[in-house]
């Protein structure tokens, strides 16, 4: 239990997927202009990460890892070289399924998330989390918590960025820096603020 708490806090604060590893930057920069849509996308990312990370854990452990196919009578087969393409395919498929399920169950949530839901398929924070999960040898429950934590960290970053950009409406920016330019600089400053946690071992 303590271990799971540690993984969660670590992935939200210390190893924030966005501000420590800079993954998922494109949708972060593009969608943080408005606090409401940023919150929506943040929740969608938490949701998708909490599903894809454990699913990819199953794929890795029962199909791809060296010796994973022992259950099928093929203990010598190593399909690890297929990891990237399989993970991407499974993420895209999961996002599609999640989208269809949400549309079927809750029309309101579906319209609220809108175009951002399919966009998550190409958010590199999702793939990055799955790859970190393999690299760090997490077990099933750990990978579930890691997915949740990574998503929460991403959510925290994009919501903070959206509120900062709201404040920046009153700023007097140099012509060339308006929009994406200042967002990149603020991302750097945010990463500096998040370095408060770097070095904590959980």
């Amino acid at each position: 239990m303590e271990n799971l708490m540690g993984i969660f806090l670590n992935s939200v604060f210390v190893g924030n997927i966005l501000l420590a590893y800079f993954l998922g930057m494109c949708s972060f920069v593009a969608v943080s202009g408005n606090l409401k849509t940023a919150t929506g996308l943040g929740f969608a990312v938490i949701f998708v990460l909490a599903i894809t990370t454990p699913v990819n854990w199953f794929i890795h452990h029962y199909l791809l890892a060296p010796g994973a196919l022992a259950w099928a009578g093929l203990p010598d087969v190593d399909l690890n070289f297929l990891r990237f393409i399989t993970f991407i395919a499974s993420i895209a498929a999961m996002v599609q399924i999640v989208e269809m399920v949400i549309e079927r169950i809750s029309q309101a949530l579906y319209t609220a998330l809108g175009v951002f839901l399919p966009l998550i398929a190409v958010n590199c924070a999702i793939l990055g989390t799955s790859l970190f999960m393999v690299e760090r040898n997490y077990n099933f429950s750990e990978s579930l918590v890691f997915g949740l934590g990574s998503g929460t960290g991403w959510f925290l970053a994009i919501v903070a960025m959206a509120s900062l950009r709201q404040k920046l409406r009153y700023a007097d920016l140099p012509y060339g820096l308006e929009g994406y330019g200042i967002t990149m600089i603020v991302t750097g400053l945010m990463a500096m603020g998040f370095m408060i946690f770097s070095g904590i071992a959980l």
């Binding site: 903070a160 603020g193 408060i196 770097s198």
Partner: peptide, 21 residues
């Protein structure tokens, strides 16, 4: 945090980021 003996500076910077939120 074993990396820094002092946390005030970064704590204030960190909270500056969340003040608008």
């Amino acid at each position: 945090n074993p990396a820094y003996p002092e946390g005030t500076m970064l704590a204030i910077l960190f909270m500056n980021l969340f003040a608008p939120l």
